[in-house]
Design a protein around this nucleic acid. Sequence first.
DNA 1: ATAGCAAACATTATCGTTAATGTCAAGCAT
DNA 2: ATGCTTGACATTAACGATAATGTTTGCTAT
Lengths: 330, 330
Amino acid sequence: MNGGKTVRLIDIANRLGLTVNTVSRALRDKSDIGAETKERVRNTAREMGYIPNSIASSLRKGSSKTIAIVFDNLVNPYFMIMADKIHSRLDARGYASMIFAGYEGGFTTEILGQILSRKVDGIITFLEPDLDVLRILSTNQIPIVLLGRKNTTLEVDSVATDDFKGGYLITEAMIASGAKKIAYIGVPSTVECSVRRLNGMTKCLKDHQVPFYSELSHFVNGESIEQIFHKLKDSQTDAIFCFNDMIALEVYRFAAESGLKVPSELKIGGFDDIQTEFKMPIKLTTIASDRDEIVDTTIRLMLDKVRQKTPYDDYQYVDFDVRIVYGDTT
Amino acid sequence: MNGGKTVRLIDIANRLGLTVNTVSRALRDKSDIGAETKERVRNTAREMGYIPNSIASSLRKGSSKTIAIVFDNLVNPYFMIMADKIHSRLDARGYASMIFAGYEGGFTTEILGQILSRKVDGIITFLEPDLDVLRILSTNQIPIVLLGRKNTTLEVDSVATDDFKGGYLITEAMIASGAKKIAYIGVPSTVECSVRRLNGMTKCLKDHQVPFYSELSHFVNGESIEQIFHKLKDSQTDAIFCFNDMIALEVYRFAAESGLKVPSELKIGGFDDIQTEFKMPIKLTTIASDRDEIVDTTIRLMLDKVRQKTPYDDYQYVDFDVRIVYGDTT
DNA sequence: ATAGCAAACATTATCGTTAATGTCAAGCAT
DNA sequence: ATGCTTGACATTAACGATAATGTTTGCTAT
């Protein structure tokens, strides 16, 4: 276009004999700029290939129109499905998404520094933040929404599924399909929702007078699913409720490799219903929820705070209903 | 900390009776600042909870330390695996990753505007950019690397796998397992790598004197895999080479539902080997490559240009070797 | 004693955009 | 004709950090 240098407002201004401010306001369609001038500015901006510098704009306005999305791990279908929806909804409202991921050690203040230095307008996280993190966010009045992993002990907006009901429903399905000895493979008990799912399961067992074997509950934290699977296999377990579909699929794989028939010899229950977007060779019995609704609520909570329609300290813990999806594993 | 307002360099400066510049240089460990001063600055910065404003820094320095990652769709295991690796490598080098996704209409200049307005230092894309896009990037000297979808007609750094060899190897595996009538399910032929994979397949068929039925080649572009599958089923196809593992898994699902035995009645070949990170109930015969090496090369090409170690117009088309992974589908 | 120099910090200008005021001429009512 | 409004643009001052220069003090060498 103009031989290397990027086009700025001042370049347009000089070309037209106007000032930067007039050009800026013209492009933003402010009312105190003449209609004809606006038209000329828009045209020359296009001709000169002007691209707004949102860094400069952010600095001046104090808002970057960017939302941070925090994962522990990108390679998780459920997170990706949600992230995809979050991203497209934010995009439609003019917000960019910045990824922050790969934090095995949790959501610490160190990570927060990196996020805040980018001057994001808000944070949507799949990772439970530290108390210190929440404190810093609060003093800086940066909104944060915890997604998928509701934690009622934290003062933070949370949007999640009804884990208890999910655990209950999936257990019920396994019992209905003949399960007598049901195991649980979850994630570390520091993750509240894993505990809630297990609680739903034990309640269901009690209601149906099926015994609960606490030694069959596993909270994966480094050990391989394979090891756990083989332990369970030796213990005559006939059903496994898995924290999520990823674990369920892996369990299915080991079952198949060990020659265990699913569902006759082993019933498997998952959680998340990722098969709607990730086509699988088998159909899992799993727990589904209305993800669009969940994401819409998340975005709404976030943007309401970003735009200060909601006071910062007005926390909400939203739970969404779940339903069971019957597959070939029960 | 200090009651709401965010801490800036000038706040530290005032507290210590220094100037902003001195504080700035102290924090960046410049040589013209006294050791004792540096220490005092660092301490009060920590005490006051100073978080650098990288927006301001970016504006002044003209570099945002951010790389754009462009997808057509986030919900694709292969992209996720790669994105995860890209992200963590960039993060280790101090670069943030900004997601741009959901562009069904391709990588157009409109999207580019959004990316460039964010003043990213470079773009890593899984989507083939328009010619206009490349032209604008060139005038602005913004580096771009095309990943996974090498296109030799475009003047752009490309890093990809040896698609031809992959197509050849997978076809060879299907033939070895008894396939006589092999179909192909790819993506639209505007995507060069889909064509290259098919070319590898036809070459292999020729070498092994197995007939090629062009009517069995499909380039999915909206139709459902299910429809195509049933058409192929009616035509007595005994093997299907799928453009990627996602399609292969879906095909497997329909085969299972139709009662077709895999691999005896139907052989299935995939591409990408996503099962290393996504545990599947079955093991696919597929094409693998060294993803770490691919990503490392991508990052190297990118950062070398960002840091101007490589001239902008020095394009490279890097192909990585592939190998076959034998699964239960051949 | 004084030029010369370096260490350590201060001043000033700048990145590109935007908000808050200023200016000025045309149009209107009294 | 005078004052007042208002439309349309200009001026000035931020936003926070950093690069390019300045300034001061103390010390060394001659």
